[in-house]
Measured scan of single mutants.
Amino acid sequence: KTVHVDGVEYRFNNPEEADKFVKRLVKEKNGNVEVRGDTYHVE
């Protein structure tokens, strides 16, 4: 899984860790998540 945040790319081998990371980011930023294939885009 890959997570894109503000143009920075984070790669996770463990999908659960990627999910936790995304949830935390969305809370912090009050942002939205767009999923494209295996990539999460957080804005």
Rank of each mutant, 00 (worst) to 15 (best):
E34L: 12
N14S: 14
K20W: 08
D6A: 04
K23P: 03
N14F: 04
V22L: 12
N32M: 13
E16Q: 07
K23A: 13
H41L: 12
R11D: 03
K29M: 13
P15T: 10
G37C: 12
Y40T: 10
V33D: 04
G31I: 13
N32Q: 12
T39K: 07
Y10E: 01
N32V: 14
V26D: 10
D38F: 02
D19Y: 13
V5G: 01
E9G: 01
G37Q: 07
A18C: 11
R24Q: 14
Y40E: 08
V22R: 04
T39C: 14
N13I: 05
N30K: 08
V5N: 01
T2A: 04
G37D: 10
D6M: 05
V8S: 03
E16W: 06
D38T: 03
D6S: 02
T39M: 07
E43L: 14
F21D: 03
H41V: 11
V3R: 00
E43M: 14
H4P: 00
T39I: 11
E34N: 10
V35C: 13
P15C: 15
F12M: 00
N13C: 13
V35K: 08
G31D: 08
G31T: 10
N32G: 07
P15D: 11
Y10G: 01
P15K: 12
V3W: 03
N32Y: 13
N30M: 09
T39D: 11
R11N: 07
R24C: 15
K1F: 15
R36F: 11
F21Y: 03
V22M: 09
H4A: 05
G31V: 15
N13E: 14
K1L: 14
E17V: 01
T39N: 09
N32P: 04
G31A: 14
E34Y: 13
F12N: 00
K1G: 04
D38S: 03
R36H: 09
V35Q: 07
H4C: 15
E9S: 07
V35E: 06
D6Q: 04
G7C: 14
G7F: 00
E17Y: 00
E16Y: 05
E43V: 14
G31P: 09
G37H: 10
Y40C: 08
H41P: 09
L25K: 05
H41Q: 10
H4K: 12
N14H: 04
V42F: 12
N30Q: 08
K29W: 14
N14Q: 03
D19P: 02
R36I: 12
V3L: 04
Y10R: 00
F21E: 03
F12Y: 00
V26A: 10
T39F: 07
V3Q: 00
V26I: 13
V33N: 06
Y40V: 12
V8L: 07
Y40G: 05
R24G: 13
V3N: 00
E43W: 15
V22Q: 03
N13H: 07
R11E: 06
E9I: 13
V26S: 05
V22G: 04
K20T: 12
K29R: 09
R11F: 14
G7L: 01
D38W: 02
V22S: 02
V35L: 11
L25N: 03
E17H: 02
K1S: 12
F21G: 02
E9K: 04
N13W: 05
H4F: 15
K1H: 13
K20A: 15
V5M: 02
V33E: 07
G7V: 01
R24H: 12
F12R: 00
T39R: 06
R36K: 11
K27W: 08
E28Q: 06
V8H: 08
G7N: 03
K1Y: 15
H41K: 08
A18W: 06
N30E: 09
R24I: 11
E17G: 00
Y40P: 06
V8T: 05
R24T: 13
K1I: 15
K23E: 14
L25Q: 04
E34S: 12
P15R: 10
H41M: 11
F21I: 01
P15A: 13
N30P: 06
H4I: 15
N32A: 09
K27S: 11
Y10H: 03
V3D: 00
Y10P: 00
H41T: 10
V8N: 03
Y10N: 00
Y10I: 06
F21P: 01
K29S: 14
Y10D: 00
L25M: 08
V3S: 00
P15S: 12
N30T: 05
V8A: 02
K20Q: 13
L25F: 07
G37N: 07
E28S: 07
G31R: 06
V26L: 14
E16A: 08
G7H: 02
